[in-house]
Amino acid sequence: MRIGELAERTGASTRSLRYYEQHGLLSARRGSNGYREYSLEDVRLVSEIRALLTVGFTLEDARPFVDCLRAGHATGAACAESVAVYRRKLAEIDEEIRVLLDRRAEVAGQLTAACPGCFAKEKRDQADD
């Protein structure tokens, strides 16, 4: 299939597909006419990449998942390298949550200092919603 059909089947833009190819996550064969040609396996690869990008993984994070699929596994998460990426990403997310909670506490403290009683009113108003 050509790049336009792969884009249509996966919901990716042709520009994204070329970008994945540029980064070595997708490889197109060239037809006698010079057009890029893709297989049904490439639909799986692009779908995996897009699913990972949607939840915050980078293209480099996606590489072990793509390699796992290329190795013949049913899912991109079936390999130890992919599991390691999941674990690392969860640790990053946990750290982001900790930072946000600390930041929230700091802002709440500043609001309380600037306007005694306002923070308690904010919490009551949120509970009413």
Rank of each mutant, 00 (worst) to 15 (best):
A113K: 09
A7E: 11
D67N: 01
V43R: 03
A71W: 07
E41A: 03
T75N: 03
L90V: 15
C68K: 01
V46E: 12
R87C: 01
G4S: 11
G76Y: 06
A80Q: 09
A127I: 06
T10L: 02
H23N: 13
T14I: 10
E92S: 06
L25C: 10
G11K: 08
E37G: 04
N33P: 03
E96H: 05
A113Y: 10
A114C: 14
D102A: 05
A12T: 12
D102F: 00
E21I: 13
Y35K: 03
G56W: 00
L90E: 10
G24A: 13
V55E: 15
V85L: 08
Y19W: 07
I49G: 02
R98M: 08
K89T: 15
R18M: 07
T58H: 01
S32R: 13
I3L: 10
E95S: 04
L101F: 01
V83M: 08
R88I: 15
D102Q: 00
R70L: 06
A78G: 06
G117N: 06
A74K: 08
H73T: 11
A108G: 04
S16Y: 06
C118N: 01
Q110M: 08
A78C: 10
D129E: 12
E81Q: 15
V66F: 10
I3F: 07
K89A: 13
Y86P: 03
Y86I: 15
L59D: 01
I97G: 08
D94I: 07
R15G: 12
A91E: 04
L53G: 01
P116C: 15
S27V: 15
E81K: 12
V83L: 13
G109T: 02
R9H: 08
A77Q: 12
V46N: 05
S13W: 02
E41S: 02
D125H: 11
M1T: 15
C115F: 04
M1F: 10
R18V: 07
A28Y: 13
R70K: 02
E37M: 06
Y86V: 15
R87E: 06
A71D: 05
I93H: 09
R9P: 08
E41D: 02
G31P: 00
R70C: 05
F57D: 14
Q126L: 15
A12G: 07
G72M: 11
R50Y: 10
A127V: 05
A28I: 14
S39Y: 05
R44I: 07
E81S: 14
A84D: 13
